[in-house]
């Protein structure tokens, strides 16, 4: 059973961070409020909210998930008029589908938004077919894999800068999966911590000095 405890200023913020930590939607976690927190007066006597988030479905790979997901993705691509090949990883959790072909650019879209939508639709259709929520990743020409490496080193570089300047740095708006990579890259960093702000597609990560 996967669980995490999170403290934050508001319940909303704490829940957001829990969802980003697991990289899932609201309906896949159970939230328990451990401490309600106080807003205090002018910041004095305020207490942080503490919640516990539990991942509802255990991530179990079933033999046919990769096969079903591959079929769904191939169908979608064919109906979109895109000629591409789909490679599915076997026995890995989450199942990884990588698309190879000439249309990589339009499948990724601006800031990977099209790719995110494609993954969302594949997940939706596959979960409906197999009647279970299943984690899976759709990638195009290993775009996400490369991006993950780039984001990790960016996060570490910026963390050093925050440490040196003692000032927070706000990153560009990013998709949930990408924010998650940044949060996870710095989760055990001794000097800095991370937060998210903004709504919808304007949501971004802030790297700030860890309070002593």
């Amino acid at each position: 059973m996967k669980e995490i405890e999170i403290s934050a200023k508001t319940i909303e913020e704490a829940v957001h961070r829990a969802l980003e930590h697991f990289g899932v939607d609201h309906d896949q976690v159970e939230i328990v409020i451990l401490k309600k927190g106080k807003s205090g007066i002018l910041g004095f006597g305020s207490e942080e909210v503490r919640i516990k988030a539990r991942l509802l479905t255990e991530m179990q790979p079933k033999a046919d998930v990769a096969k079903v997901a591959q079929e769904v993705l191939e169908n979608l691509l064919k109906l979109m008029g895109v000629s591409a090949e789909v490679e599915a990883s076997k026995g890995e959790v989450p199942v990884l589908l990588n698309i190879k072909g000439d249309d990589s650019g339009i499948l990724i879209g601006r800031r990977g938004q099209t790719l995110a939508c494609l993954q969302y639709v594949v997940r939706l259709v596959v979960s409906e077919k197999l009647k279970a929520w299943l984690p899976l990743t759709v990638d195009v020409a290993e775009y996400k894999k490369k991006r993950q490496g780039a984001l990790r080193s960016l996060a570490l570089r910026l963390a050093e800068r925050v440490k040196a300047s003692r000032r927070p740095i706000t990153l560009e708006p990013m998709l949930a999966d990408e924010r998650r990579i940044v949060h996870l890259a710095l989760v055990n960093h001794p000097d800095v911590t991370t937060q998210s702000t903004g709504e919808g597609d304007q949501r971004k990560v802030i790297i700030l000095l860890r309070k002593r």
Binding site: L76, L79, M80, V82, T114, C117, V121
Partner: peptide, 21 residues
């Protein structure tokens, strides 16, 4: 979908199909 997420995803994929055509 919640906050129109499914509709948005369908429109995005549709845009790819339209671009191809």
């Amino acid at each position: 979908g919640r906050q129109g997420r499914v509709a948005e995803a369908m429109r995005t994929l549709l845009r790819v199909a339209a671009t191809k055509e």
